[in-house]
Design a protein around this nucleic acid. Structure first.
Lengths: 219, 219, 219, 219
DNA sequence: CATGAATGAGCCTTCATTCAT
DNA sequence: CATGAATGAAGGCTCATTCAT
């Protein structure tokens, strides 16, 4: 039989709208991350948030909308965390390195948050996938600018249009690496960051200088 | 969020058991891939397969079992495709190269199949994850043997126990790269294979000879 | 998953119709008795009978009809068994006694048959209950005649119309006692028969001579 | 075999929990009694109760649980009705007599309730049968105490251990008589009670004084 | 503002029943 | 005559969503 959820979380009343919304989003992220989008029930979210279901709907709308709101908040948080770490005045390489560090650290401490939401969103198909794409593109543009900046003093400076695909690859690789990390959690955040940095920075150098491996020279 | 489809696919009748089973698996893979495990309805699978639901159950059992059957078939297909490509008599490097080529080609032509099933299976938790793990381990062991073989003539031959973690990383990287590829489909299968080959073969060399990158020497 | 019943019962072919029908009824009674009307599946009955489902339908019709056929056969068997035991020439009392003996013995050795079918039939509502009623009435008339015969030489001979309600009570008490016996199987068939005989015969005497117990004389 | 009914019963709304629960149990008892456990559909029960299926599940759980709840309620009601009638201060014989009266009256006015539930429960196997057994045992113990009390002033007072089997027989006989009564509804409740009282009280006397009937002395 | 009570709609699963061979 | 293959039609159960208080 259904165990009528008489959870004992205190139902604080009459909170300002912003606080309530945060409360709800916290609950939603936790529940979505734990059970996945489909298995998460609005009942449980409302319960964890300490409010009634009608309130849940009043504040953040239907399940889909709530999920999108979760994605948005987590994405924003991540981008802001990275932005805060990447101080102006550092060299592009160091900016990238700091950014990657923060990225992996953030993911590590927010598995309930971004990493899992990311996987969920990718799986639920439209419209969640497009929501994600927007954030990916935003990140890509930032990094492309960074890379272009790094070539400013070289013999052949690159424009943003040229660095963009490379930046996209970096972002994608980052996402993929996180996925892989989830299955291999024995590595440290810094280790992961270094791995990616290595790949990127050396690959970037190789790209500029035209080195590569090919089937012909098999050992 | 779901659009039910009244498909008028012709219902071919009285097929031999084996053919029907393939038909059903094809349909199931397609539907699971498109909507995800949870959003996929047995109704739609039956419809796409061109049969009635009772047949669906008679042939491949409940939803869980059907899904496992899908995973198994796709995994088997992939492994066999690779096995067929890796002819004996080739050098380890070339065997690996051929294997990677086929892997990425396979994924490219079976996005509905492998790639998405892989993501689905990883997310739906037990018992699907374990099912997948078995296949991953099988692949890992094969590759570990390959790598060990490659060092047979070197100064410090490695035993399978030593190459295994490296092989695991390769498999993981392969899976992760595919994930990334899905978001960046402009690359070719051979290009992807080369990328991974590069990483692996050079990394393998580095591993033996102890080279690496570190934050200190930022350019 | 469905375990496709490839039972290994030999499927004897080309049997004369009567034999086939007996085979089927045997199987049906067994299965109905074991699982109850609803939980019995035509699949299992066909399997136990060693024939295919279409044959099952060809020989004895739909599930309802098959069940009615079972009731009929078992009722017929019982009545015939009793008829065979009650030889002419015996005194009414002895005829009744023999009849009751056979009745309880029959039930004891045919629990799969009559007892359970009786309970099943009573539970499935119309049209099965009416089917049973017909047989009950037939038995009742036989016994009423017997009782009337028993009073032929007494001071006040009774006609069948007068003994009938009493006979009905006997039949009903018999059925009820069997029900009770199923829950108290430690008693013997003869013990049960004696219990009923006692009740009936003494009650019959009392009835004639007008003895009875009443609330007034509570000890 | 089932005739679905689109009943237009008015759906009273927003009832307090306790009232709804009674409503639902009433409906469930009626439907289970009419169609039997298996033929009863949750749809119909919800319909008769005047609520939607989800409420049905929210209030009383799955079909099994609902059925058990029905058994419990009916058993409780019966026992309480009897308890209320058997005032202290009466002689054992009179207590028994009152109890039997109430028992048969209760059954008569609750055919949908007790009698049929009893038959249903007995046939649906575990776990329903055990549920029933508990109530039977409870009734048995009460009666055994009563009988022991009745012999307190006699030459050979009996202890509860001795009267218990006799009480069990009484309870069983009562159940069996009800079964029989259902098929012979022309008798009154008092008539039935008297029949059983007769049997029991005289049998009880016989038991003490060792009288019995045997095949030898056929009239 | 806040909620307990209520429901429409859908999904998984299973059978009795029947073609087409 | 005999059957493997196939399905229409329900039934149990759950969940996102919304009144009515």
């Amino acid at each position: 039989m259904v165990d009528r959820q008489d959870s004992d979380r205190p139902r604080t009343r009459r909170l300002p709208r912003a606080v309530r919304e945060r409360q709800i989003l916290d609950a939603a992220v936790e529940v979505f991350a734990t059970h996945g989008f489909h298995n998460a029930s609005m009942d449980e979210i409302a319960d964890v948030a300490g409010i009634s279901k009608p309130m849940l709907y009043a504040y953040l709308g239907a399940k889909d909308e709530l999920f999108v709101a979760c994605i948005r908040r987590e994405a924003t948080r991540l981008i802001e965390a990275i932005g805060a770490a990447v101080e102006a005045g550092l060299s592009p390489a160091e900016q990238l390195w700091r950014g990657l560090q923060v990225f992996f650290e953030y993911v590590q401490h927010n598995q309930s948050g971004w990493a899992v939401l990311h996987r969920q969103a990718n799986l639920q198909g439209e419209p969640f996938v497009s929501e994600l794409s927007q954030w990916r593109e935003r990140a890509t543009r930032l990094i492309a600018a960074l890379l272009a900046q790094a070539t400013v003093d070289s013999a052949q400076p690159m424009r943003v249009e040229q660095t963009e695909p490379f930046a996209a690859a970096l972002v994608g690789a980052g996402e993929a690496l996180v996925e892989w990390w989830l299955h291999n959690p024995e590595h440290t955040a810094d280790g992961m960051a270094m791995r990616l940095m290595n790949m990127v920075w050396m690959g970037f150098g190789d790209l500029v200088e035209g080195r590569s491996w090919s089937p012909g020279n098999a050992r």
